[in-house]
């Protein structure tokens, strides 16, 4: 699939350097617009994608962000999966606390992203990697 092609409602952005964070959030915004999101919702999605992509750069590069259009029985939405094969998170409930960070960031990445999206799940195995899945549904 070409870059920017959204005919299948899906985009994969490799996250290797900090420039890819910008790429991921721009792609998220574009696909979210295509789904029908507007205004503050576009910014919330792009910001959440920025945070989870940055987590990969800070802790676990390389990884990838997969953006997909999703549909449940009621609504359309956007799904964001941020995946890496990094060191994993030993204590997920700790990582989900505001202000917790093992690097010098603000520690708002994961808990903040959860507040920006409607659904949020973290799966992680130490030594194997982390997958963050988040969804936002059209209001």
């Amino acid at each position: 699939m070409k870059r920017g092609d959204m005919s299948h409602g899906r985009r994969i952005i490799p996250i290797v350097s900090d420039a890819d964070i910008v790429e991921a959030r721009m792609a998220a915004r574009t696909l979210a617009e295509f789904v029908g999101f507007s205004g503050a919702h576009l910014v919330m999605i792009a910001t959440a994608v920025s945070e989870v992509a940055r987590n990969i750069i800070e802790y676990a590069k390389p990884g990838e962000v997969v953006l997909s259009v999703v549909q449940n029985s009621l609504r359309r939405g956007l799904e964001v999966v941020a995946r890496d094969q990094g060191p994993g998170i030993a204590d997920i409930s700790q990582a989900m606390q505001d202000g917790f960070s093992t690097s010098r960031s603000l520690g708002l990445g994961l808990p903040g992203s959860r507040r920006l999206m409607d659904e949020f799940e973290v799966e992680s195995k130490v030594g194997l990697g982390t997958t963050v899945t988040m969804r936002k549904w059209l209001p």
Partner: peptide, 14 residues
Amino acid sequence: IQPEVAFAMVQLGL
């Protein structure tokens, strides 16, 4: 700072 950006910043806790 755009209003939507300000809104997202507050949600994020920034």
